[in-house]
Design a protein around this nucleic acid. Structure first.
Length: 573
RNA sequence: GGGCCUGUAGCUCAGUUGGUUAGAGCAGUCCGCUCAUAACGGAUUGGUCGCAGGUUCAAGUCCUGCCGGGCCUACCA
């Protein structure tokens, strides 16, 4: 039995995420976690909310709430929606947890001891009206290059030129609009990533089987220009993890907090501690996943994320772990995704464009979304959601191919033999051919799932569903029943077993439908079909079952058009 | 500006280290079946593989240039 540690990129606390965020990390991670559990492996699947940073403070202020209260509420909401999508986290933690406070401060202390932290004095823009330092992109002004009057302090969106806030003409706060700004001197800690450049480079080079998307982004950062740059890991904010050197104060760093991108990945580890606390476990119970000196040496760690998160996971976080000099578990495989676009443009949280997770669940059950998103996962390039494609795929794959198969088999059996697995007849060459075909296909399905080739796995699963229809068509139990009821009984017996098999194989993709099928088949035998012939005899003659309700209803043209209109504009406040 | 990814049938995509007549699903057309959510099965139409050169006995695959789409470029996270 292997041990799989799986983490999904942690979603930012600021609002409800859209379907592009979902397919970019949490959903594929859940698919992999469910699959590995189904194969009988031990899995620890962790996710959390990323709660610190300027956007969280501003969102809380806008909502008129203290930031900790705002985060607590948003965590509860995101957690509930994650449940709605059947994301099977072992724990859904919070980067603001006490565990993460301690661990982040611990890492900073270790890095300082190792000489990998440098104190740097820099100039930052301070807004007197807002009473806070502002990140570069929260300063607006006129672009000195093209004259665009809403250029941001880091870059002009109009002419794409790189800027410093001080380059802007008539700079103002993007928060309040105030032009009462001044440049202040402030001291920050930098992580000396440059000192670890060669070590990181060698580590990346040794990962030959990682997706090109992952390694190419890492290489770019390692070798672009002067090579990997040091990175500020502190900020002048109120909300965050106070800067400390382990449990000691850090002179000169009072009133500062760690930068979210320093503490967010550490939350992957801290989340293990939160899991232990929530389940009455000991430190040893989570450390056996995270400390190679305490049992994690046989753990396989896989991370899932969108491409925008790759630099932090391939460079900054490994630098933190390596630099600590302690035996924390490093990632073994990084699966990264491109973006999902929405009907000709981009999904956008800030503009409210596209379908958001809460809205999706309001109009259709999770399985519909899970199937479409996973079978169209943007693995090789950006992909696109259109309502036409969604309707066509869901109706054909889920309703016609899988759902209708279940209907025709269970209803035929009920009308001819009653609601129990019929006895009589023997399996012949046709059945053997089906078993051989399924065996080949299931082995291919496993190979794709092991390699996290999601679209290929979905295609193979669909082909496995199709094989059932092909078999029924050629076996013709409705014709056989008239001349040789025993022969028809054998076909139906096999087909009913096929339904249980489909439930087991499909569960990682469509867990609710799988559960419905298991209940209808009146079984809790969810063992993986290592031996297909044996798996198809799990339900013996005489075993009772129930005809389930329609497994997947079809999306009508009217609904599609309605949704197309409803989601064409921006999300209501 | 620089870097990376990408352009294959009407649509969504596969095409391993270059190797026969380029594949799948959907849509279309025809046929079959009637157990079923008017579902299922079989067959079939459809592509000068973005364009132009080059290397090679052989190029969708390698090289060069051009055209189109996308992403990243380090203080949003």
């Amino acid at each position: 039995m292997a041990r799989h540690l799986i983490t999904s990129a942690i979603p930012y606390i600021n609002g409800i995420k859209h379907l592009g965020n979902l397919i970019g990390s949490q959903l594929p991670a859940d698919l992999f976690a469910r699959y590995q559990r189904a194969r009988g492996h031990e899995v620890m699947f962790l996710c959390a909310t990323d709660e610190h940073g300027t956007p969280a403070e501003l969102a809380a202020a806008k909502a008129g709430k203290p930031v900790d209260e705002y985060c607590r509420e948003m965590h509860a909401i995101q957690s509930e929606i994650a449940d709605g999508f059947r994301l099977s986290f072992d724990h859904f933690g919070r980067s603001s947890s006490p565990q993460n406070h301690r661990l982040t401060q611990h890492f900073a202390g270790r890095l300082a001891q190792a000489g990998l932290i440098e104190e740097v004095s820099e100039k930052q823009v301070y807004s007197n009206a807002d009473g806070r330092f502002l990140p570069d992109r929260y300063i607006e002004g006129t672009c000195p290059n093209c004259g665009y009057d809403k250029a941001r302090g880091d870059q002009c969106e109009n002419c794409t030129i790189q800027l410093n806030p001080t380059d802007l003409i008539n700079p103002r706060s993007a928060v309040s609009g105030s032009s009462d700004l001044e440049v202040r001197e402030t001291k920050h800690l930098h992580l000396r990533q440059s000192a670890m450049k060669d070590k990181l480079d060698q580590w990346i080079d040794s990962q030959v089987d990682w997706p090109v998307l992952t390694t190419s982004i890492a290489k770019k950062w390692l070798h672009d220009g002067d090579g990997l740059q040091d990175r500020g890991i502190t900020r002048d904010l109120d909300w965050g993890i106070p800067v400390k050197k382990g449990d000691q104060d850090w002179p000169g760093m009072e009133d500062k907090v760690f930068y979210v991108w320093f503490d967010a990945p550490i939350e992957y580890i801290a989340c293990g501690g939160e899991w232990a606390e929530a389940h009455g476990k000991t430190d040893a119970d989570w450390e056996r996943w995270w400390r190679t000196d305490k049992g994690a040496d046989d753990v396989r760690y896989t991370q899932f994320m969108g491409k925008d998160n790759v630099p932090f996971h391939t460079l900054s976080f490994p630098a933190t772990i390596m630099g600590s000099g302690e035996p924390w578990k490093l990632v073994d495989y990084i699966k990264s995704f491109n973006y999902l676009n929405y009907d000709g443009g981009q999904f956008s949280t800030s503009q409210g464009r596209g379908v958001f997770m809460d809205q999706a669940l309001e109009i259709l059950p999770a399985d519909y979304w899970r199937w479409w998103l996973l079978s169209h996962a943007p693995e090789n390039s950006d992909s696109e959601f259109t309502w036409e494609n969604f309707q066509a795929s869901v109706n054909k794959d889920l309703a016609d191919v899988l759902g209708n198969f279940v209907s025709r088999v269970t209803k035929f059996c009920r009308s001819k033999f009653g609601e129990e697995v019929p006895a009589g007849g023997d399996y012949g060459p046709q059945e053997q051919a089906l078993i051989d075909d399924l065996t080949r296909r299931i082995r291919a399905y496993e190979a794709h799932m092991d390699a996290i080739e999601i679209r290929k796995a979905a295609g193979e699963l669909r082909a496995i569903w199709v094989a059932g229809n092909e078999y029924l068509q050629s076996a013709e139990p409705w014709a056989k029943f008239k001349t040789d009821p025993d022969a028809a009984a054998a076909v139906v017996r096999l087909s009913l077993n096929l339904i249980r098999l489909y439930a087991v194989l499909s569960q990682p993709f469509i867990p609710d439908a799988a559960a419905t099928l298991m209940t209808a088949m009146n079984t809790d035998d969810d063992s993986w079909p290592d031996d297909v012939e044996q798996a198809l005899s799990a339900l013996p003659a005489g075993h009772g079952f129930a005809v389930p309700d329609v497994l997947f209803r079809k999306i009508t043209d009217e609904e599609r058009e309605d949704w197309q209109t409803r989601f064409s504009g921006t999300r209501d406040g």
